[in-house]
Simulated scan of single mutants.
Amino acid sequence: MIHIRNAREDEAELLSEIGVRAWQKAMASLGEGDAMVDAARSAFFNFVAGSWITATVIEWNGHPAGWAARETLDEKISDFWIDPAFTGHGLGTALLQNIEKDIAVQGLDTAMMQTHSGNSEAISFFQKRGYAIHWLSIAYNPKLDRDVPSVGLSKSLETAEHGTSGFAY
């Protein structure tokens, strides 16, 4: 059973480990995940410990299985991580719909996110759910201490026929 809730302050270590596992899977195709895992673990823990209030957790049968965050509580999804052990159950879709609804409730009409340009699984996931790539860039990532090629994706949360959010409240 799927349950979505706000993160709790005492979950920093648990959520950061979910993030690390999902990040390692995403980085495996690039062959760089193992070399940067300690830096990633520290970055995840520091983020979750300091910004837990911006995170939403998805549980599968009572177990935290993923989380997403909107670090600045705007239209940007700063983090989106599903534990690889829990993929294939619709958790990513349910979590994304919840985050999109939160964005729409704020009166924002677009959801945005970015990911590593080599993260084809994530790019495909978001594209199948209505996101389109709008930019490609290479920028220095201080958390990883290196340049990272990224793509930016966005999705309109408005329905064409009514001009309002496509979510039932």
Rank of each mutant, 00 (worst) to 15 (best):
E13V: 14
N6V: 04
A168R: 05
G152W: 07
E59Y: 08
M27W: 13
S156V: 03
H63C: 10
M112G: 01
E9P: 04
W135S: 12
V37I: 15
I58P: 01
W23F: 13
Q114M: 09
W135F: 12
R5S: 03
D109E: 09
M112N: 03
A68V: 01
I58R: 04
W52L: 03
Y140N: 08
A43N: 10
A35H: 12
S137E: 12
A43D: 13
A22H: 11
S150V: 10
R8C: 03
L30C: 09
F45A: 01
A40W: 06
S124W: 12
A12K: 06
Q127M: 14
I4R: 04
I18Q: 01
S78E: 03
T93S: 14
I103R: 00
E100G: 02
L153I: 06
G130H: 08
T72C: 09
P84F: 06
T159I: 05
A160T: 12
S78L: 00
W67R: 02
Q114R: 11
Q24S: 13
L73Y: 05
H162V: 03
M27I: 02
S154R: 15
A55N: 10
S51N: 15
F167A: 01
D102G: 06
E75G: 01
W23C: 14
R41W: 05
S120R: 13
N141Q: 09
G130F: 01
P142K: 07
G88N: 11
M113I: 12
G130P: 01
L91H: 02
A43H: 04
W67L: 10
I133Y: 09
A43Q: 05
A28S: 15
H3W: 06
A111Q: 00
R129L: 07
F45R: 04
A85Y: 11
A132R: 15
S42E: 15
W81P: 00
E121I: 12
P142H: 06
H134L: 03
M113N: 11
Y169W: 14
I123Q: 07
D145Q: 13
N98K: 14
V48D: 08
G163M: 12
M112D: 02
E158D: 09
D34F: 06
A35C: 10
T93Y: 06
H89K: 15
S51E: 09
A139S: 14
D10W: 08
N46K: 13
Q114P: 00
T72E: 08
A28C: 05
G118Y: 05
N6R: 14
I4K: 04
G19F: 02
H89I: 10
I99M: 13
S150D: 07
H63S: 08
T56I: 09
L96K: 04
L153G: 05
L91T: 02
N119E: 07
P149S: 14
S165V: 00
S154H: 13
T115E: 03
V48I: 15
T87K: 06
D10T: 09
E17K: 10
F80T: 02
I18W: 02
K101Q: 12
E9T: 05
T87E: 15
L91Q: 04
A65T: 10
E71N: 11
D83R: 14
W52G: 02
L15E: 00
D147I: 05
A68W: 03
S117M: 07
G31R: 06
D83S: 13
N119Q: 11
Y169E: 12
A12E: 05
T93D: 12
S156M: 03
E17H: 04
I2T: 10
S150N: 10
T115D: 01
G118F: 07
